[in-house]
């Protein structure tokens, strides 16, 4: 699949490797960060960029053929849906009363008229 003598393949490989790095960091963040909000930060976005770069690597490797264009479409859908989903989860978690991590410094959302039942950290 990857021919290292071919510069296009090499660039694609490097882009995919960087994407993989961000995916790994995202997974690490999911384990290491303390509460649902911080985990969403790492879990959805490092992973968005990671997956984005892997698909970009596929596009570079195959160009605009059946495989590459599918990668381009997936890339677009991920970039659009992933932040929306993260936003929905964060909002639902706050409304359901999940507290922020005890080390959190400020919560301007708690007690606002949009979320009167929300708990402060």
């Amino acid at each position: 699949m990857i021919d290292f003598g071919n510069p296009v393949h090499l660039i694609a490989f490097v882009v995919m490797a960087i994407g993989l790095f961000f995916d790994i960091v995202g997974c690490l963040g999911l384990v290491r960060l303390p509460d649902v909000y911080n985990r969403l930060q790492a879990g959805t976005k490092c992973v968005t960029l990671g997956t984005f770069l892997i698909l970009l690597g596929v596009l570079i490797r195959f160009g605009f053929d059946a495989m590459g264009v599918k990668a381009l479409l997936c890339l677009w859908f991920i970039a659009m849906t992933s932040p929306t989903a993260a936003h929905a989860i964060a909002r639902a978690a706050h409304k359901a009363g999940f507290p922020l991590w005890k080390g959190s410094v400020v919560d301007r959302y708690a007690g606002s008229k949009e979320d009167p039942k929300g708990v402060a950290s």
């Binding site: 959805t44 932040p83 936003h87 909002r91 949009e114």
Partner: peptide, 12 residues
């Protein structure tokens, strides 16, 4: 855009 830029996540 805020949510895609890590470190920031739109809640509402």
């Amino acid at each position: 855009s805020i949510t895609l830029t890590p470190g920031t996540l739109s809640v509402d």
